[in-house]
């Protein structure tokens, strides 16, 4: 059991090295986008990969936190760190409400309720005046971190995103490898048995849902500050679909899978952007291919090759 940690450390080191060195050769804004989506996918994976719950409305947390952070930074003049915390807290609160409503349902019903809630949220943001409707909230000031570090400097911004991403990643890692995570896995494996051992499984699932929503919010709020924009794209149902794709492609229930999945999906979108609507077709094709040929996802298959979970 102890030896299985070594390869995780190595993989973590590779990941950190990648995000530290890559901006020397790759456009940093692109990498920041990757990290935001990677955190979003990791948060989603906490819920489905370790709790066995498929949420089809996770965009509502990403988007809500984005709007809250953007609005508070732009209109209320919050400093970036406070705006991010505020956005994350909003996603956490929404996660609590959505969780209480959805958590008692299972399988497809759970997915449908989360989708329905996310659609309600979407149409609310479409109409609400503060979101700017189709225009979104634009020109959000990045401001100065703690009043000191000017985030309009791309490297300062990059460092902040990297720290947020790594902190979120480690937080999820700890949650998975905690006494709570152990109970969560047992619920995923066999819920009636977990009940018969005396666990109030609903509460554990609710906590997992709220944690996942909160971290998705952290990703959304950070993203809004980085891109100085909060828009309907982030609350649209296709965003909920995209995070499923990222997680599945990278490897459901693997620690590093969602990061790899996010990297692949965001790269495709960026570098195939000139194909226009065909990007969606390519994504669909990859999705089908993934489900048919490598269901464990990229990292899942890799883990199988080296016979260690990654």
């Amino acid at each position: 059991m102890t030896q299985s940690k070594t390869h995780e450390r190595v993989a973590f080191g590779v990941m950190v090295a990648f995000f530290v060195l890559a901006p020397l050769v790759v456009y940093p804004v692109f990498l920041m986008k990757v990290m935001c989506f990677a955190l979003f996918a990791c948060a989603f994976n906490l819920l489905i990969g370790y709790g066995g719950l498929l949420s089809f409305g996770h965009a509502m947390f990403l988007g809500t936190a984005g709007y809250a952070a953007a609005h508070s930074a732009k209109v209320w003049g919050f400093s970036p760190e406070v705006a991010i915390v505020f956005g994350t807290a909003c996603a956490c609160a929404l996660g609590g409400i959505a969780g209480v409503l959805a958590i008692r349902r299972q399988g497809i019903y759970f997915a449908m309720i989360t989708l329905a809630l996310a659609q309600m949220i979407f149409f609310y943001y479409l109409q609400a005046p503060f979101t700017g409707g189709e225009d979104g909230i634009q020109a959000v000031p990045r401001g100065r971190l703690l009043g000191l570090l000017d985030l309009s400097n791309i490297w300062a911004m990059y460092a902040v995103v990297l720290v947020v991403f790594l902190a979120g990643f480690l937080f999820i890692y700890r949650a998975i490898h905690s006494p709570f995570g152990q109970v969560l896995k047992s619920i995923r494996e066999n819920e009636p048995r977990a009940v018969s051992l005396g666990y109030d499984t609903t509460r554990y699932k609710l906590l997992a849902f709220i944690l996942s929503a909160t971290l998705a919010g952290l990703a959304g709020a950070t993203k809004a500050i980085v891109f100085q924009l909060a828009s309907l794209t982030d609350v649209h149902w296709s965003m909920s679909g995209e995070v499923v794709l990222m997680t599945l492609l990278g490897g459901l229930g693997t620690i590093f899978g969602p990061v790899v999945g996010a990297l692949v999906v965001v790269s495709l979108e960026n570098y195939l952007a000139q194909l226009g609507a065909w990007v969606t077709v390519v994504q669909g094709g990859i999705f089908v291919l993934c489900v048919l040929t490598f269901r464990r996802g990229i990292v899942g298959e890799l883990g199988r090759l080296i016979r260690r979970p990654l």
Partner: peptide, 27 residues
Amino acid sequence: HLTVLENVRIALQRKKRGPSFDFWVSE
């Protein structure tokens, strides 16, 4: 998909620790 040891430990965890909502503690 848990080991034999982990299977038994899940039950012991419930018995000896009570509810385990502590997601910040190391396993």
